[in-house]
Design a protein around this nucleic acid. Structure first.
Lengths: 244, 244
DNA sequence: ATGCAGAAATTGGTTGGACCATTGAACCAC
DNA sequence: GTGGTTCAATGGTCCAACCAATTTCTGCAT
């Protein structure tokens, strides 16, 4: 029997169709992130489908981080929507134990180094100034609050990612941030957690400002290395039973 | 005015609670991928929530690729479920155009370099031998099929990721592979696409075998650089209108 | 007994309508 | 202005059906 080429049948695809239509609408109206899109009731009426179906479609988009729903207010666009988006949902199992954290940190090292290098190549005066501003804020917070500068630290790195010219870096790292943050808050008993990495923020900034990609990459690697060391020291301070 | 620190309020979370309960159930019953989980109606009854709420929760899991729903049959587990999963839904806008491809390639460069370095540190004799075997297969295919070695090329890199000792690398890259592959098959009109990167596979292998992380990292960076060059050359061969 | 077509039960998909909880704007009293 | 109050809009939940695809059962013909 000869193999017939595909009859790309698509019997049921209500909510997919809804999403497609919605994507078209967003494009047509040139909606930008932050703007509100029509209410579920209006969408249901216009698309001639049940409100429930609209909700399922929007739930999908919400899960993908494309929209944000606020009860009583509306549904808001959270990211740019284009017809040819590639969705790549990753679910990483077991990020709570020490091994899992080290693994995510290795991913971060990979991205951090590359982002710093790209940043050194592409960052313009404005971007470099912005990174420098975040660095100053971080150093100030570090000194005035005796090392508690997690928030400012994070903003510094975000500025670097943003200046890399590739939004994917910020996207991926932002998704992992929750996990990192969880441990930043509970530094495994290491009192001066993060102190060791502190000076490298400035060296990274200097290499970026000097448009030295390899140097920036090297400094970023050093920074993550100190974090890994802190983590290992912290783990050593705990009972083995806590580490699974 | 002093800035108050955040009160991270969290009022309602029905479907989140449902997912949490469901995750607990899956763990308790030790359900494995492929197995069917209770019907929506039963879940709604047991959890004392509306079937609609159950559906929204399952829609989330479906979007994350954790379950698969088959009408008339049931809902089936598609991946292992653990209570501490880290969800990282990535949506690459416009992955079809040249810019989007270059951006994903930058992510790959970051991961490829780090994976090669880790591999040089951790790979044992068995892993190195496996990588060498994939390399031989690739070189053989390359010579006998005049450069058509995409499949073997991919398997070589997979072997490196696997030997890095961190499954996240393979997981992330695998999710992106579809996109890479799409372009490997349509090399933008560049006849000898991939030829330039060919020799670096062996140099990477040699640095890994020599347990030289920095060397392996450097060679991996060179490899991706040649791919980027090929891509740019290919893009230059096309009309500007095709590049958006 | 066996095989198979059709009926029946099961299950996810969809619909419509109702009500609740939150939000935000308009309004009012002070 | 400031601080409540009211009220309409909007997302969140619930219910009770029915539709569509799938699976299972049934019963007849062989």
């Amino acid at each position: 029997m000869t193999e017939f080429s595909l009859p790309p049948i698509q019997t049921t695809a209500r909510d997919d169709a809804v999403l497609k239509a919605l994507a078209g609408f967003v494009m047509q109206e040139a909606l930008r992130p932050g703007q509100r899109l029509p209410t579920e009731r209006i969408l249901a009426e216009r698309l001639k489908v049940s409100r429930n179906t609209v909700r399922e479609a929007l739930t999908r988009w919400e899960g993908l981080g494309l929209v944000e729903r606020r009860q009583g207010s509306g549904t808001y666009l959270k990211a740019a929507v284009s017809p040819d988006m590639l969705h790549m949902p990753l679910t990483l199992a077991g990020g709570n134990d020490f091994t899992g954290l080290m693994r995510t940190l290795e991913i971060r090292r990979a991205l951090e180094a590359e982002a710093a290098a790209l940043c050194a190549i592409r960052a313009g005066k404005a971007e470099i100034a912005e990174i420098g501003r975040k660095l100053d804020l971080m150093e100030e917070a570090f000194h005035s609050r005796a090392g508690m500068s997690a928030e400012e630290d994070w903003e510094f790195h975000q500025a670097v990612y943003r200046a890399s010219g590739n939004p994917l870096f910020e996207q991926i790292i932002a998704a992992m941030h929750e996990l990192f943050h969880r441990f930043w808050e509970h530094p495994l008993g290491v009192r001066d957690f993060g102190h060791a990495s502190f000076p490298y923020h400035r060296t990274i900034y200097e290499r970026i400002a000097a448009h030295d990609p390899d140097g920036a990459r090297a400094e970023a690697l050093k920074l993550i290395a100190t974090v890994e060391d802190d983590l290992k020291r912290g783990a050593a301070n705990l009972k083995l039973s806590d580490l699974k």
